[in-house]
Design a protein around this nucleic acid. Structure first.
Length: 472
RNA sequence: GGCCCCAUCGUCUAACGGUUAGGACACCACCCUUUCAAGGUGGUAACGCGAGUUCGAUUCUCGCUGGGGCUACCA
């Protein structure tokens, strides 16, 4: 494949969810695979929904996933500015050209009238569509109304024309223009709508492949008509399947769909996120291969992109995450774990704990629950002991204390040896004894190996915890 | 409602006319084991329905059903 120019075009109206991010990932992979360019373009044309902080967050997602971009915000490029809000003049000029060539027209209808029109059409069972009320206005009327401002520019769609294209993912698609509305291209605030801006910018920025979600399929004919009217070549089109939530509905900000940043904060690794996302709508071997970025770039094949929507299954993400956590070097894992450890946690201590928790973590955020007792003496529940330990647990612990106090060489081997000897001598159940010890030391029935934990905790602290418990 | 798209285990998917329909996650069982994990072994589990085409359909065609997307001066 020849080098592509692809773009990720987020709208700063919130954070992209996994679906949008996956689209960015696919585009990035295609760019890197072909030695092409990955461009970020900010589609900030919606003044009403604009959220100033969101752009930084969107870029943070790309940075976190290490999807570097060759052109766009911060890095600039030959086609700047990469913000649509800074290209208004340009869109307005194109809109004027379209009006001059009779492909677009002014519309002065109020939103009230449009709403009423739509309502009536729906009641009659008709397709809600602009009725071209303003198309019949005379030159003079138009000029007069323009003085008052508050107008939009609409695309004059052909009445009955088939628009077809060979979608690189979806295959041949044909849509007749009779079902399409006269889309507003330029809003009354002078900003373009998506439909105008995307076509103009994709052309200007020499985008070779438009990669986006299938929700855009229905409006693609409008774009096709614009390309045609402007005499511009049409880029290759790839409409990617959607990622659906467990409820099978499209992920959306409204339904609380999380962003990659949310997952990061819940303790998911970037590698896991990428590996998980790439298998949503694309397949390679058994869809469980652990692949590095480099391997992914090589293996990625857009022809194997699925047409079906995929349902997001967090369990698989958890699995990938666990795999990656276990593959991490302790050193690196310590750094990753730091934000999830208690604030005052000592880094050396975290490092010591890692071998004990590494294969017990699915998410970094589980570190606290699993290893919190290393940092803070736990609350010990009598009922937890009663329910999980057969026999006289107080007795187990009293004897355990004596043995532990006598241990000189504070090593796992020695601790185990001495304690096992005690258990044997008393004919106790091993499980019962250690469960009692576990609960008193860690406050939980689920912990890392307890004797190894005691080594890290230290003899003194171990004795203190036992004594504190036995006093009550 | 209209237009467009889709349809294999619960989930992600393999299969490109002939397979005991394969794998992975999840789930279950067993092994390992002082807990929980991890790991190992095994197991349950799918071609939506109906017509064609064909010697033969999961695979091709049509219809139905089901699901999804779109139907804004939002992207």
């Amino acid at each position: 494949m020849k080098p592509v120019r692809v773009r990720f075009a987020p709208s700063p109206t919130g954070l992209p969810h996994i679906g949008n991010t996956r689209t960015a990932l696919f585009a990035w992979l295609l760019a890197r695979q072909t030695g092409g360019r990955f461009i970020v373009r900010v589609e900030d044309t919606d003044q009403k929904r604009y959220q100033p902080q969101s752009l930084e967050k969107i870029l943070e997602i790309l940075e976190f996933l290490e999807l570097d971009w060759d052109e766009g915000p911060r890095v600039g490029g030959p086609h700047q500015p990469y913000f649509q809000s800074q290209r208004l003049d340009h869109y307005q000029k194109i809109a004027q050209e379209l009006i001059d060539s009779g492909v677009a027209y002014y519309c002065f209808c109020s939103s009230d009238r449009l709403e009423k029109l739509r309502r009536e059409q729906k009641e009659k069972g008709q397709i809600p569509k602009y009725d071209r009320h303003c198309l019949s206005l005379s030159e003079k009327e138009i000029e007069k109304k323009k003085q008052a401002g508050n107008y939009v520019v609409r695309l004059k769609m052909p009445e009955n024309l088939n628009f077809s294209w060979k979608d690189l993912v979806q295959g041949e698609i044909t849509i007749n223009s009779k079902d399409l509305d006269d889309q507003v291209l330029l809003k009354s605030d002078g900003y373009p709508t998506y439909h105008l801006a995307v076509v103009v910018d994709d052309h200007d920025m020499k985008i070779s492949h438009v990669i986006r979600g299938v929700e855009w399929i229905s409006s693609t004919p409008k774009h096709l008509f614009l390309y045609q009217s402007l005499g511009w070549p049409v880029p290759a089109l790839m409409h990617l399947p959607l990622i659906l939530g467990p409820d099978k509905a499209k992920l959306s900000k409204r339904h609380g769909a999380k962003s990659v940043l949310d997952y990061r904060d819940e303790g998911y690794l970037k590698e896991a996120l990428i590996n998980f996302m790439v298998y949503l709508g694309w397949s390679y071997h058994d869809n469980s291969q652990i692949l590095t970025k480099e391997e992914l770039i090589k293996a990625f094949d857009y022809q194997k992109i699925q047409k079906q929507n995929a349902i997001f299954d967090i369990k698989k993400l958890d699995w990938f995450n666990g795999q990656y956590i276990r593959m991490k070097k302790d050193e690196e894992l310590a750094q990753l774990l730091k934000p999830f450890a208690p604030k005052e946690a000592d880094e050396d201590l975290i490092k010591k704990i890692i071998p004990l928790v590494k294969e017990r973590l699915a998410r970094l955020s589980e570190f606290r629950g699993l290893a919190g007792f290393f940092f803070l003496s736990p609350e010990v529940s009598q009922s937890l002991l009663k329910e999980n330990v057969r026999g006289n647990y107080k007795n187990y612990l009293k004897e355990a204390l004596l043995v532990i106090q006598s241990i000189k060489d504070w090593q796992e081997g020695e601790i185990t040896r001495k304690l096992m000897a005690l258990i044997k001598k008393k004919s106790w159940q091993t499980g019962d004894f250690f469960m009692a010890l576990r609960i008193v030391i860690a406050g939980s029935r689920h912990t890392p190996p307890i004797n190894d934990s005691l080594v890290i905790l230290g003899k003194e602290e171990t004795i203190q915890r036992l004594q504190k418990f036995l006093k009550n």
